[in-house]
Amino acid sequence: MKKKTIGALILAAGAAATLAAAATPGLSSTLTKPADHPESGITWAAEQFASADVTAEKGLAEAVRRCMAKAGYDYTPASAGQSTVDLKHHIGFDTLTVEAARASGYASSKPKGPGEPAEGSELGKLFADPAFQRALHGGEPQEQNTVRSSQGTGMLAGGCTAEGITAVYGNANDYMRATGLAFNSLLVATNAAGQDSDIEAAVVAWKECMTTTAFPYSRPGEAVSAGLEAGGQKELKIAVTDATCREKTDFDAKLTAVLDKYLTTRMKELETEVAEVRQIRNDASARASALLG
């Protein structure tokens, strides 16, 4: 048995989360139009739709771990799905509360989830091993391990990855729909929301507040960059000042109101897909629960 390794990379389905938006069900070539009567709370509902089922993802990781153990690798993959989605991040801003800023500065703005392993690290060497890759993703030719369906193309689905996906989600097509494609289907709405003039109005109000402080930055992104560069106590001071001005100007509420306009339209368009994805996740969660015991 090879040395235990905790995966810092997603399964094979990172590709599912980065499939071209054009592969998403019902995706229009034009950006989503704002609703005349935005639905309060729809942004939260959209974030739930964009987020993978936690139990299903744990079951998938466990199924892959067991399969890899049979191949001689004690390897536990990191979750591939977007477990918690903050759609404000996808219009250029991360949620920041005063409490979070006091506790950990701009931790919420730092990279999350799996990423590329450092070259030469134990994990990097493992992923450079062709035998490990064959066990995880399947053998050559690669063409035979590529999923093509009405939902999209581009995810490797061989080896233990395919075994895990089948065990929990039933098939790769449903897995793609319940993870990366669910998230991708909202991009036409978030991209449209990011161009809404109400966002700039919210930024201007925040800027006016910041001019009265020791950190007169023009945009939240400038404050975040300065805080992360400074680190330590100065990062905390900048973050708390930033978060306080966001609170005073209702910054996050204004961003959510913008998202509500576009997501009301988009979630209406996706009603059938949302219901079907919910059922896929429920079934996957049940299989995962049985697998996890």
Rank of each mutant, 00 (worst) to 15 (best):
A226R: 08
Q233H: 12
E200P: 01
G231T: 04
T211R: 14
A205L: 00
V204H: 01
E222W: 04
S225W: 07
E222A: 08
G221Y: 02
M210E: 03
E229N: 15
A223Q: 01
C209I: 12
T211Y: 11
A202R: 04
M210I: 07
Q233P: 06
P216W: 11
S225V: 13
E200A: 10
V224W: 02
Q233L: 13
E222N: 10
R219D: 15
A230Y: 03
Q233V: 13
A230D: 07
V204T: 06
K234F: 01
R219W: 11
K207G: 01
G221R: 05
L228A: 08
C209R: 13
E229A: 15
L228M: 13
A214N: 15
G231N: 06
G227F: 03
G227N: 05
E208Q: 11
G231F: 05
F215K: 05
C209W: 08
S218D: 12
G232I: 09
M210Y: 05
M210G: 03
A201F: 13
K234D: 10
E222S: 08
K234Q: 13
P220N: 13
G227L: 03
G232W: 13
Y217A: 04
K234R: 10
A226D: 09
V224H: 02
A202K: 07
G221S: 05
S225R: 10
T213F: 04
V204P: 01
P220S: 08
P216F: 09
S218G: 12
P220H: 07
F215S: 06
G227H: 02
T213Y: 03
T213G: 09
G231P: 04
A214E: 15
S218Q: 10
K234A: 06
G227W: 02
A226Y: 06
A201C: 13
T213D: 05
V204W: 00
A214M: 11
